[in-house]
Design a binder for these strands. Structure first.
Lengths: 221, 221
DNA sequence: CATCGGATCAAACGGTCGTATGAAACGGCC
DNA sequence: GGCCGTTTCATACGACCGTTTGATCCGATG
C-alpha cells in the first residue's frame, strides 16, 4: 500500500474540494477516488467538516512555517526588511510550495483560494489558521509603509490577499482570458508578477492626504 | 402581489446563492424564501443552472452598461483617459451600484465575487458575461500603461479583478480582520481605497525589463 | 495458540436533492 | 357562459446525500 488510508482520503478530498467546492463534493466521490471504504471518512475524521479541517491542519503548518521562518530571517538582520522582501516572504511560500511539494499542494492552494470568498464556518476555519501569520506580518508591513495609516495598510493587505487567492484559485484562468499571452506554469514568473503588482500597490500614495473626520459631509450634490 | 413570481425567485436565489453557494443552496430553500411553489423554478427557468444564468442576465447588463458608458464618455474627449479615470470606470459601477440599487444588487455582487474563484460551467457563464467589458477596457489600459507589455497588463488586471472580487465577496471581512480599524459600509471610501491600491499596482515598474522571451534565450539591454 | 483493539468492510438508515407530472386555478377573448 | 393558453399547485419519482451500524479482518501482545 503506497500510503495510509487517512492520507489517501486527504489527498482525494483536497483535490475534489478544490475542484467542486465543499458542498459540491460528496463523501462517496472522495472515498471512491481514494479507493477506500465510505465509512472510513467518519471513522478517521468524524464527519465531513472534520475532514475539511484535517485538510487544512495537514498543509497549513508548512506554508505558515515557511513564511514565518523567512520573516524571522529578515528581521534578525540589523536593518528592517524592504517591502519586496516582506512580500517575498508573504506570498512566496504560497506560490512556490505549490510546485515543489507536488500536485497535492497545488490542489490545496486552489482550495485556499476558492474558500477565501466564502463565509460561514468554513471561512472561520481558514481565518483561524492564518491568524498568527497575519499578526506577525502586519506590523512589519506597517513599518515598511510609513506613508500609510493603519487602516490603509489593512485595506491594501486585504486587497493583496484577494489578488493572491484569486490567482491561487485557478492559475490557468489567466492563460484563458489573456488568450495565451500569459503563461501560468512557472511559479517564479507568477511570483515576480505578483510581487511587482503588490509592491506598486502598497507603495502608492495614500488615498486620503489627511484622514480627518470620516463622516464629515452629509449633503447630496 | 408586490412582484412577479419570476422576480421573487430571482431575488431569493441570488441572495441564497451569494450566502451559501450554488451547490449549497437547494431549490426548496429558494422557493420557500420566495414563497412560491417548488415547481415554478423549473417552469420559469428550466432547471437550476438556468436560474443561475438568469440571475446574471438580469443584473449584469446594468453594471456593464454603466462601465461602458463611463468609458465612452472618457474616450469621447480629446485626450486619452488617465489611469485613475479608467479605474473609476471599471470598478466604480461594481462598487457603487451595490448601495444605490438596494440590497438585491449587493447580494448579486457578493455572488459575483464568490463565483470568481470557481471553475467549471459556472465560471464560463461569468466569463462570457464580462467578456465584452474586458475587451473594451484592455486596450484602454494598455494605452494608459505604456511602460508595461501586454502580458504584464494582463497579469495586473487579473490581480486587480481578484482584489475587487475578494472585496465584493464579503465586504464585512475587512472589518473583521482589521478588528474594526476599517469600515466597509461606505462605498465611496471603499472605491477610493481600491482605486488608490490599483493605481499604484498598475503604475509600478515592470517586473521584467525584457519580458518577451520567457527563457534566457535572448538578452537585450 | 488465544485474545483484543484498531481498521476496514458491506449494507442500510432517514433525509434531501433536482426534476417531472398532471390536475387545478387564472385571465383574456369569442 | 365556454374556451384556451399560461401559470400555479400538491405530489411523486428515483437518485444521491451524510451518517451509522454491526460484522469481519488483521497484526500485535500475552
Amino acid at each position: 500500500m503506497s500510503s495510509s488510508t487517512k492520507d489517501r482520503i486527504l489527498d482525494a478530498a483536497e483535490c475534489l474540494f478544490a475542484q467542486h467546492g465543499f458542498e459540491g463534493t460528496s463523501l462517496r466521490a472522495v472515498t471512491s477516488e481514494a479507493d477506500v471504504n465510505l465509512a472510513s471518512v467518519n471513522y478517521h475524521f468524524g464527519n465531513k467538516i472534520g475532514l475539511f479541517q484535517a485538510i487544512f491542519e495537514r498543509r497549513v503548518g508548512h506554508i505558515n512555517d515557511a513564511r514565518l521562518e523567512q520573516l524571522d530571517r529578515l528581521q534578525s538582520r540589523g536593518l528592517p526588511p524592504s517591502l519586496e522582501e516582506l512580500l517575498e516572504a508573504f506570498v512566496g511560500p504560497a506560490l512556490r510550495l505549490t510546485s515543489r511539494e507536488g500536485e497535492g499542494f497545488e490542489s490545496f492552494m486552489r482550495l485556499v483560494g476558492r474558500m477565501s470568498t466564502v463565509s460561514g464556518q468554513h471561512a472561520e476555519v481558514i481565518r483561524d489558521v492564518f491568524r498568527d501569520v497575519q499578526e506577525r506580518f502586519f506590523p512589519a508591513f506597517m513599518q515598511a509603509l510609513p506613508h500609510l495609516s493603519a487602516p490603509e495598510v489593512f485595506w491594501r493587505l486585504h486587497f493583496l490577499i484577494g489578488s493572491m487567492c484569486s490567482y491561487l484559485a485557478d492559475p490557468c484562468r489567466l492563460e484563458l482570458i489573456s488568450q495565451g499571452h500569459c503563461r501560468s506554469d512557472d511559479p517564479e514568473e507568477s511570483l515576480r508578477q505578483l510581487v511587482a503588482f503588490a509592491a506598486g500597490a502598497l507603495r502608492g500614495p495614500s488615498a486620503l492626504p489627511h484622514p480627518t473626520t470620516p463622516a464629515s459631509k452629509e449633503s447630496h450634490p
